[in-house]
Amino acid sequence: MDYAIIVLLQVVVTIANLALISAGLAVIFGMMRIINMAHGEFLMLGGYAALVSHQAGLNLWLSIFVVAPLVVGLVGAVIERLVIRRLYGRMIDTMLATWGVSLALVGLITVIFGNTVAGVSPPLGSLEIGAYAIGRYELLVAGVSALLFAAGWWVLARTPVGLIARAAMQNRDMAAALGVDPARVYAATFVTGAAISGLAGALIAPIAGVAPTIGAAYIAKTFITVISGGAAILAGTLSAAGLLGAVNAAFSFLTGPVLGEVALLACAVLLLRLLPQGVTGRFFRRSL
């Protein structure tokens, strides 16, 4: 019984992790159709922002929840202004441009911090369940992930800001005709996506550690999750993360981490063969 609970918690943590690191990409790629190859680097920057500010003496929670999103949001604003703004609607071009941005960011961070791994111990200790235990911090990350998606839904569905954002993404010209400045909406949305990635990167940093090249470990997984999710960014990302995360965790338990990753990829291939439009191409079609 205790073991069942701990396995269940581990599966939830794996799913939440996948959803969390994909959330920023869901906004930037899912909503804005920008193939952001620098997504992994946004996560990496978030990790460094939190780590560096914490090592400079700042409270760890402030570093993670305030500094990291702010820093990466700011970086996102600069990149949007310099690069992305010129490329809206040119999907393949955004891929090339953001790939360049990704290489530049990896290079920049390597020059500043060196190509080494840094880390900070996860705080909070562990939660005991019978003979088993799981890190409280990992559960907290799962909780934050859930909150993030709930907040995302609320903003998109219940606030004028969300309505305007959705409208501008769906029909730019009509939104402009109704008095919305699409350029500003696009910029704000990109910055929001970057900030969410920064927060996600900071949250996973104590668990995984940070290195300049760590983005590469996440980029494929996050794209697979968002693409498998389909058109509805929140429901899609969540359902795809749920499916892929569960498969990954289950196979990791049964065999090992290698086959866990293989199973995740195989599952995504199968999913896209059966549902080419992603999960939300067939199910939850009217959701967000």
Partner: peptide, 15 residues
């Protein structure tokens, strides 16, 4: 370096 995170996660899991 990547495997180093094991020692962190081990302690975080109360082991």
């Amino acid at each position: 370096a990547a495997h180093n995170s094991f020692y962190r996660q081990w302690v975080a899991s109360g082991m």
